[in-house]
């Protein structure tokens, strides 16, 4: 009896140690990841202060000029364009799916949205190159002829379609399913009694959504948007295929841009041949890592609080 017991306790203890090992491994690996990036980026940080790197506009690795500003603006531009399209679209779709759609319609549409979220980014990239870039090119030519001097809109170079807008549209398509999934979950977790109270007071369904459901769920909706932002900010392959990749600050929606992830993806071949080039790219990766980590942590913190709030 004692023997059996000790064997069982032995396995239990071994298993516990194993689990703790895995947990510590995850923390250790994340630490290693951060350290490796930081260590590789250090030579550049030693030579130039960070503010100078972030504000510099010249990108000439051969002359050791590493100005990140065009890429930062490119990243922000593409991401904000994407969010400007994706947020209203996702919010309307999520409200439709969660509040309006009949169960059969929902049962049909929800899996489709989930499937969309699983499609690889290169596939979105192919779609962008084949469909969205030509369409944006036509639109740009139209804008150039009929609206020759509108700031932020009139293309400053002969438009090709490979542009900020094309990148934004492709990203919006990619990010929307994820955002919808989170918003849908939040909306459905809001207690039915709140809606019933509003409807009983004579509110229409839209008024119920606007004044009760959206208001109750708004921290969750904000975090869904933040999660989408983080995802769009770091997305690489789909963007690099359609955004044009010209390292200058874009002056209009139809100009090509060059976001940070695209910079890293395009330069890996040459980065070992020029001194400090790899340090510059690792710094870009570090910047991406930290900014996305921060945005995600904030978003997830809100989400957990919302979820816990309704449960308890």
């Amino acid at each position: 009896m004692a023997k059996v017991m000790s064997r069982r306790l032995f396995w239990d203890r071994t298993f516990t140690v194993l689990l703790w090992g895995a947990g510590c491994l995850v923390i250790g690996l994340t630490g290693t990841l951060f350290t490796a990036l930081f260590w590789r980026a250090l030579p550049l940080l030693h030579r130039q202060p960070l503010s100078e790197l972030l504000m510099g506009t010249q990108w000439q690795p051969a002359k050791e000029a590493f100005g990140f500003l065009p890429f930062l603006i490119g990243s922000l531009g593409v991401t904000l364009t994407a969010m400007a399209i994706a947020v209203p679209l996702s919010l309307l779709t999520a409200v439709y799916l969660a509040e309006y759609a009949r169960p059969t319609v929902r049962l049909l549409l929800k899996p489709m949205v989930d499937l969309m979220a699983g499609i690889p980014s290169v596939v979105y990239g192919v779609f962008g190159v084949l469909v969205i870039v030509p369409a944006v090119g036509k639109l740009a030519a139209f804008v150039k002829t009929y609206l020759p001097s509108v700031p932020l809109l009139t293309p400053s170079a002969p438009p090709t379609g490979y542009s900020l807008l094309a990148g934004g549209i492709v990203l919006a398509l990619m990010v929307s399913p994820t955002v919808i999934a989170v918003m849908d979950e939040i909306l459905r977790s809001i207690p039915m009694s709140l809606r019933e109270a509003a409807l009983a007071l004579g509110a229409t369904r839209w008024e119920t959504v606007r004044f009760v459901v959206l208001r109750a769920g708004h921290p969750g909706i904000v975090s869904a948007v933040l999660l989408g932002f983080a995802r769009a900010f770091g997305e690489t392959m789909a963007v690099v295929m359609v955004v044009g990749n010209v390292p200058s600050i874009p002056k209009s929606l139809f100009d090509p841009a060059y976001p940070l992830p695209a910079l890293i993806a395009n330069s890996y071949g040459e980065m070992m041949s020029v001194p400090l080039y790899d340090a510059a790219l690792m710094l870009a990766a570090l910047w991406l890592f930290l900014s996305v980590l921060a945005v995600n942590l904030v978003a997830q913190h809100f989400l957990r609080r919302v979820r816990r709030g309704w449960a308890g």
Partner: peptide, 29 residues
């Protein structure tokens, strides 16, 4: 500890894969 691990994983959830790629490359080198 659980809270820390969970937030860490939440943060990692959206870290762009190009970062893992670049970091993996640094380790390979």
């Amino acid at each position: 500890f659980a809270q820390f691990l969970r937030s860490l994983l939440d943060g990692l959830w959206g870290v762009p894969s190009i970062v893992y790629g670049a970091c993996g490359y640094a380790l390979l080198v």
